[in-house]
């Protein structure tokens, strides 16, 4: 009983001052620069940020899927159920992968092996983690395909990835990821490569499955619409750092970081169009700084409308101006 209450108090996943870089010929690319966040059981946490802000690298660091070299996790801890994932052996990590923490990827078209049937590839999960026979594993795979609403799953299981559309393959990936009933599902832009209508279906499916399976979901996306729909709390990343973290409502209603504000202004709103006629969307001026040569102080400084010389003096700390609302900007109070 005490152990159970302990479990519920501690977050399920804690990323603690994670630093991940790539050692390339052009220098050290600091892709993830002091990222910390925590995730509770059954919680859905969103990570948003522009392309190149380090979202995938964060996720891949958690899974320890980065190829080293060139990647190196320089500092930090990743605590999952009191296990430091960065300390354990690779074979223990492989017991966790797919079993307790699963991941689905951005590229459904290339994420499945073209030479093996979908059922075969799904079966591997059950054989590997639950020790089922191939026959049992196959039957479980067919059940999983049914759960992700693939019609005639028995027939589909025998098909190969090239017989399926992108949306269908992403469903297969989701089914595979949920096969062993993981505690955490990391979804790295699962809908980015799909048609808009299919995107909505996949998001709906994930929301439904979240209820059935009770996995915590780390939803990575640059689509704020998806975040609004699925996540309770959001992390905004910029140039390898967490610049803001809050619950979804606060992020949308009272964003504190200038970057988050610009991000929100860059998405179209239905209301704007009807009341003011055609209003131009605001783009964020400038480009993301090179991660191999980051500016001193605030990483957003070069593009920030409120930039001030003091923003460049030393590292900016993550402050917590309101409970559960963290922001990495020294001028946020005066804005």
């Amino acid at each position: 009983m005490t152990e159970l209450s302990n479990r519920t108090k501690r977050p399920l996943l804690e990323v603690d001052h994670l630093h991940t870089s790539f050692h390339t010929f052009d220098g050290v690319v600091k892709a993830v620069n002091d990222v910390s966040f925590a995730m509770n059981t059954r919680e859905t946490l969103g990570i948003v940020g522009e392309s190149g802000s380090g979202k995938s690298v964060t996720a891949l660091s958690i899974m320890r899927l980065l190829k080293s070299p060139p990647a190196r996790i320089e500092k930090g801890r990743i605590l999952f159920d009191s296990i430091d994932l960065l300390e354990i052996s690779m074979s223990r990590m492989r017991d966790i992968r797919g079993n307790r923490i699963s991941m689905i990827f951005q590229e459904p078209m290339t994420s499945l092996n073209p030479l093996f049937s979908v059922g075969n590839q799904m079966s591997e999960m059950f054989v590997r983690h639950q020790g089922l026979t191939r026959r049992e594993a196959w039957n479980r795979s067919v059940e999983m395909l049914e759960k992700v609403q693939i019609p005639s799953p028995g027939k589909r299981a025998r098909e190969f990835p090239h017989h399926m559309s992108g949306g269908m393959r992403q469903r297969v990936m989701i089914a595979m990821a949920l096969a062993c009933d993981p505690e955490i599902l990391i979804a790295d832009e699962p809908t980015t490569a799909l048609d808009v209508t299919i995107q909505a279906q996949v998001v709906d499916l994930m929301m439904k499955l979240r209820k059935d399976y009770g996995a915590a979901i780390l939803m990575i996306t640059h689509d704020l619409g998806v975040i609004a729909e699925i996540a309770r709390r959001v992390i905004v990343m910029y140039a390898g750092q967490v610049v803001e973290e809050a619950d979804v409502i606060s992020i949308f209603e009272e964003p504190r970081h200038p970057y988050t504000r610009s991000l929100l202004k860059s998405i179209p709103k239905l209301g704007d169009a009807s009341t003011h006629g055609r209003k131009r969307l605001q783009e964020i001026k400038g480009i993301v700084p090179s991660l191999a040569d980051l500016p001193a102080g605030c990483h957003f400084y070069p593009r920030c409308p409120h930039a001030d010389p003091i923003c460049r003096q030393g590292e900016i700390a993550l402050e917590e101006p309101a409970v559960g609302h963290r922001v990495r900007c020294i001028r946020h109070a005066g804005l």
Binding site: L65, R94, N99, F105, S111, N113, E124
Partner: peptide
């Protein structure tokens, strides 16, 4: 990418090399 998927599934290196890498 499908090799990364295989690793994400927790399969062993030997299994991945012997099945997925070899066949391709």
């Amino acid at each position: 990418d499908y090799i990364r998927t295989a690793h994400a599934k927790g399969l062993s290196v030997l299994f991945i090399n012997g099945k997925h890498v070899f066949r391709n």
